[in-house]
Nucleic acid binder design. Sequence first.
DNA 1: CCTGAAGACTTCAGAAGTAAAGTTCGAAGG
DNA 2: CCTTCGAACTTTACTTCTGAAGTCTTCAGG
Lengths: 186, 186
Amino acid sequence: MTAAEGSPATPQELDLDAQIAAYQREFPEVDPQVEKVVTALGRLNRRMNVAYGRQLVDLGISNSEWEVLKALVVVGRPYQLGPGDLAKRLGLTPAAMTHRIDRMVGEGLVTRERDESNRVRVIVELTDEGREKWLQTMRLAAAFEDDLLQDLTPEERGSLGEILTRLLRRVESTQPDAGGRLEDLD
Amino acid sequence: MTAAEGSPATPQELDLDAQIAAYQREFPEVDPQVEKVVTALGRLNRRMNVAYGRQLVDLGISNSEWEVLKALVVVGRPYQLGPGDLAKRLGLTPAAMTHRIDRMVGEGLVTRERDESNRVRVIVELTDEGREKWLQTMRLAAAFEDDLLQDLTPEERGSLGEILTRLLRRVESTQPDAGGRLEDLD
DNA sequence: CCTGAAGACTTCAGAAGTAAAGTTCGAAGG
DNA sequence: CCTTCGAACTTTACTTCTGAAGTCTTCAGG
């Protein structure tokens, strides 16, 4: 029998404190408190993505497809966006969007048609099936997320949300949105 | 002239509160507080990775290569690991590691040689140049991270680190490390 | 009208990942 | 000793993404 092909996407990592200690050993100038926050953030996020990924597999869609569903649902009825808009919102090249949409059309999650009022444009629209899929993912994701934050007190949740929002604002203002504000798109 | 090819990897996203509001509109059962924490976490992490990526481009290495450097540095002298260990630690397939190591050997960041005491094994070792690269990335990353957390009070940093650590522990214990504990590897 | 430029999407080639099959070496039993 | 199994890495086929070139549509001038 050949090797069991260890399932990837689930990293085996050192204990967090051990990892921080290693950084201090190799790079003494580092601030352990800062490094702990940043490292925990990255690792937490990675694990969450693994968890989402597993749930999505059960529902028969990929993480990439989920992103598209989310973007379409968020804009609201009639759940339409162009490939270019989608690409900007997801941070992908237009070429990648073309392929993703191909797949998703094949799976019946979205439709693609030319905009008859301006035949250069293409309209990608969520199907009922696509919307239903998104609802299913939301149910699973919400359950996972509730469970994840279960041990936090309401005060802790509030303060966590507030601090993260502040950090996000800082980084998003530092990092201009690669040419053109989102408001231009709607 | 052809299209300017909008630079990807920097998503244009809705305001965080607007996104949460959209989720509530489309899925009223969602807990906005929970969703805010989770969404901010994901978006923050993504932006941080974009920021790291830009710094790495300046230093001439990719994010993937950075991961390998980190893993080797963290184990300490003599900075050696096998491809299989590396793959497990990074959450990749062994096949992907083979290719990554190929590239990194070509760039002089690591060496690859057979273990003479057991010729099935291969030893990947950080070169001096690789270690120096890692130190450079650390300097830039630490500066970025210090700046990111600049607005937080020491108490906020401490509590953020503590809460994130707790969440990480929860998710890591829920999500067994795909076959085999890390302790078996050293 | 016709032409040229610009915009929006798609197509094509190359990079990097996964899954599965293949190769090589070491160890254990007859 | 020889054979067979298992472990560790590599190879192959296929997927998905990026960057650059290509196609089609619209619009502004001549």
